[in-house]
Design a protein around this nucleic acid. Structure first.
Lengths: 216, 216
DNA sequence: TATATACGGTACTGTTGAGTTTCGGATATT
DNA sequence: AATATCCGAAACTCAACAGTACCGTATATA
């Protein structure tokens, strides 16, 4: 969190301005950040105004500026906080085959969540290409979780000798995220089950030497 | 071109307002559009101002507004005009093998041009995700030319029975463009020869059943 | 030569939005 | 109770920018 925090406990008793008064209601932080993400997905960074975010969160503008120094810092925090609500940790599918695992990851919630995050990324894109910090934050929050899941599944497939050990797992794990981004943002077509399965059966599995799907 | 064109020849002789006066210097159009693309790549759509473009093109602001009705139309035209200066038509490499053709397409000019176009795309991204017309223009000018070249090379490989006819050429031809976009814009790593060759040898060729590169 | 338009440049207008301030009311400490 | 800070809401300041108008000059037609 980047916020200003007027709240450091006063070790110096002459600093009287620290314990008095109404406490800041930090339970509102997530609501505000969620509102920021909504606006971001709808209008992009430049289209987003602080008033929109405040209105959506039913908060006052001053409340936002008490917590974040600028629009930019609010957005950085909002992007970073996406990471937390993301993918389940090591509760990945384990069906015994790589194809089974990859297909098992295709669930409606994951698809919708992914499309929403890609829209947010699109709204941040022009900033991202000029701010490395934001680029890293967006990558960590949006692409990396998916890529890491794919990496894990492929490493397990290597361990059980289902696929060769010299596969370029790093690259292969990024295929689905990259292609999904292009499909949603430029082609404006849905990333549906059909598309993802054809990616698995037509690209990823053939690329690791698994010629045909186990089931017809 | 979207510009206003006060230049329709007057079939009606009562319309005296068409033949007189200094002619518009249309040789400046490409210079202005090129300046717009430069600014677009550097600052993005929202960061770009008409004054920046005019200054870069050594033109007056009024000159731009005489030719395009708004900032938006100027940008649409600029993006569309990228398409023309793009890839050579059917002067594609023909080395006899798919790998040879794909590798032959990796030339420095193509790489630099590609990176520049991706930066422009990034600057337009938030607009693109809300304006289908712009999304189509950007796709046609930036991604499609590359994808079409890949498609062509793969179709030829099918014809000479180098790869199976049931490959998903449509998807495979989009792998390199998509991955390059992710690499440049989010990872901020160079799309160099090493990366592209590893994509060819580690993903595309294995995916079409060509296990190892012809030369070690 | 007279007229009409384009040119580059500059000044202007109007709007929008980031950030600040102020308000009445709520909630905390002392 | 007194005080200090929070809250949502609204008014405000200030800078940036799209778009327009005008300048003196250049270049075309008639």
């Amino acid at each position: 969190m980047t916020q200003l925090d007027t709240a450091a406990p006063p070790s110096d008793p002459s600093d009287v301005s620290a314990k008095l008064g109404r406490k800041r209601d930090h339970t509102r932080d997530p609501e505000i950040l969620a509102a920021a993400l909504e606006v971001l997905a709808e209008t992009g960074y430049d289209g987003m105004t602080i008033d929109m975010v405040a209105a959506r969160a039913r908060a006052g503008k001053a409340t936002l500026y008490r917590r974040w120094a600028s629009k930019g810092e609010l957005v950085i925090d909002a992007v970073a906080c996406m990471k937390k609500t993301d993918l389940d940790l090591a509760a990945l599918p384990d069906t015994g085959t790589l194809r089974g695992d990859l297909v098992a990851m295709i669930i409606p919630h994951s698809i919708d969540d992914g499309e929403r995050k890609l829209k947010i990324m699109a709204g941040l894109m022009s900033m991202i290409s000029r701010d490395p910090q934001l680029a890293d934050a967006a990558n960590a929050a949006i692409v990396e979780p998916r890529a890491e899941a794919n990496r894990m599944l492929m490493r397990r497939a290597v361990e059980r000798a289902e696929i060769p050990a010299d596969c370029d797992i790093e690259t292969l794990s990024l295929i689905a995220p990259s292609m999904a981004a292009y499909r949603v943002l430029i082609l404006r077509k849905p990333v549906d089950r059909t598309f993802l399965v054809s990616l698995i059966d037509g690209v990823i599995l053939p690329a690791v030497g698994l010629r045909s799907p186990p089931e017809a």
